[in-house]
């Protein structure tokens, strides 16, 4: 069962909470079908049935969308959805780990936890994007991502359905780029 170390160059990790689904439904279809990096999405959500979200997103993009199972290897050109009720962690061999420990920022998955763990595994190959939300989750994560040499992006607060989450990160001076939806699309497609 030996799998070789993943071969991805860059990881794009997107965190979102209230109001972020709308943003994602605009961003994903606009990502170029030949996109060769990997996208991982960590959302706070009420409904626990993960298939709904995966279904919603997969019909809107040519990229392969899949729900993460523990130990999956991260592959280029895929969009991965973090399952509900587990924290998402990243291993140095570019595989996923899941962890059902205590909620962080009232959330599981927590965006901070995912950002921090990805920063440890990917360092300066990591790009984190923080979308709409009503929670302060993500700010600590962005801070850590920057310490490890990664890049952070926040959705332009006035373009977000709920501005609080990106605003928090921006106010804490842990964000490299503040972009609206079109800006984020452009940014991803140029990677």
């Amino acid at each position: 069962m030996e799998e070789t170390k993943g071969s991805i160059a860059k990881l794009i990790l997107i965190g979102g909470s209230a109001g972020s689904l709308d943003a994602l439904l605009k961003i994903l279809p606009a990502v170029h079908p030949a996109f060769r990096q990997s996208i991982v999405i960590v959302l706070h959500r009420k409904f626990s049935n993960d298939n709904i979200l995966t279904g919603l997103l997969s019909v809107r993009t040519k990229l392969k969308v899949c729900e993460i199972e523990e130990k999956d290897i991260i592959r280029p050109g895929y969009v991965y959805i973090a399952p509900g009720d587990y924290h998402l962690l990243f291993e140095k061999d570019h595989s996923f780990s899941l962890d059902d420990s205590e909620k962080v920022n009232y959330s599981r998955p927590s965006i901070d936890v995912a950002f921090q763990s990805a920063a440890d595994a990917f360092g300066d190959s990591l790009i984190c994007i923080l979308l709409s939300g009503a929670n302060a989750d993500g700010t600590e994560g962005c801070k850590y991502v920057k310490e490890k040499g990664g890049v952070t992006v926040a959705q332009l607060p006035r373009s977000a359905e709920v501005a609080y989450m990106p605003s928090q990160a921006i106010a804490s001076k842990v964000v490299d780029y503040v972009l609206d939806i079109d800006g984020i699309i452009d940014f991803i497609n140029k990677l």
């Binding site: 962690l89 990243f90 291993e91 140095k92 780990s97 962890d99 420990s101 936890v113 763990s117 440890d120 595994a121």
Partner: peptide, 9 residues
């Protein structure tokens, strides 16, 4: 044990 989780704990 998985490294990422152990590290966190």
């Amino acid at each position: 044990y998985t490294k990422a989780s152990m590290h966190r704990r």
